[in-house]
Structures are given as structure tokens and as C-alpha cells.
């Protein structure tokens, strides 16, 4: 049986009827149509589905939507202040060539956001460890790390 839930995503509250076994990722993508949250593996191994839950980076494919009712959820669509003003991390990823196919990008950017919020001046090593749960097959991570460093000093 479906359950009525209310989810706070990107500052908006949504009343939804969902099956209790639906993951946050599925609800975000399929009900709210926020497809910037990607499905890379669905098993918690790639980081492409990362969203912020009360400021922490979490894997939305491993969370049940019904358990996220009291949290503030931010997806990649909710990061920029407005359409014409990117978040400094997005800006840095664009300018430093940290994006190739872009499939990992939303997840990596949100992980980096949580990282910089908790540790505003991470060392390169701390960045490496911080994003090690986000796989990227395209970039070799070098430019991603560079972009995060640039955003931290921005």
C-alpha cells in the first residue's frame, strides 16, 4: 500500500503517495522529475545519486523515501541560487574542466559541497578521501580536485 509522505526538496514541500520500499532516488527522479540525481548503480557503490540530507552527502539509492520526511533535501537542481547564478562549486567545475560526460558530476559536486561545509580548507589528500566514494571514469579526478580547491579559495 502506498503511504502519504511529505518531502522537503530544494526548499519546496511535496505531498506524495509512495510505496514504502521506494528509495529516495526513485522518488526524486520519478515522482519529482529531478533527473539530475543519477542512477549509476543503484547499490551504493558509485556516488552518482548523491544528495544532501540536512547538509550531509548521502546516497539516495540506499535510503527509503519514507524515512527522509523530516529532513531538508538538496539535489543538484537546488544548489545554484538562480538559473543565471551558478554555485561557486558549479562555476569551478565548469571553468576547470572537471566535467566530461557529466554523469558523475551532480554527485561529485554535492559531495564536495558537504565536504567544504564541514571542512572549508581541506588539503588535497582530504579532498581525495572526501570524494573517494564518487567514482568517475572520465576525468582521472585531477581536474575535479583542482576545481574543488579553486572553489574553496573562491
Amino acid at each position: 500500500m502506498k503511504q502519504l509522505i511529505s518531502l522537503n526538496v530544494n526548499g519546496e514541500t511535496h505531498e506524495l503517495a509512495v510505496f514504502p520500499w521506494r528509495t529516495l532516488q526513485e522518488v526524486i527522479r520519478e515522482e519529482l522529475k529531478l533527473t539530475g540525481t543519477k542512477k549509476g548503480c543503484d547499490t551504493g557503490d558509485c556516488g552518482a545519486c548523491t544528495v544532501l540530507l540536512d547538509g550531509r552527502a548521502v546516497l539516495s539509492c540506499l535510503l527509503l523515501a519514507v524515512r527522509c520526511q523530516d529532513a531538508e533535501i538538496v539535489t543538484i537542481e537546488g544548489l545554484a541560487e538562480s538559473k543565471d547564478r551558478l554555485h561557486p562549486l558549479q562555476e569551478a567545475f565548469v571553468n576547470h574542466g572537471a566535467i566530461q560526460c557529466g554523469f558523475c558530476t551532480p554527485g561529485v559536486i554535492l559531495t564536495a559541497k558537504a565536504l567544504l561545509d564541514s571542512n572549508p580548507n581541506p588539503t588535497k589528500e582530504e579532498i581525495r578521501v572526501g570524494i573517494s566514494g564518487n567514482l568517475c571514469r572520465c576525468t582521472g579526478y585531477a581536474k575535479i580536485i583542482e576545481a574543488i580547491q579553486a572553489a574553496q579559495s573562491a
Binding site: 529531478l34 543538484i76 566535467i99 557529466g102
Partner: peptide, 12 residues
Amino acid sequence: PRVDAVVKATGE
């Protein structure tokens, strides 16, 4: 920057 970087950075 890449021509498609912005829409990839925003999830669009």
C-alpha cells in the same frame, strides 16, 4: 570551458 559544461553542472 566545455560548451555543455553548465547544463551538466546543474543537472539539466
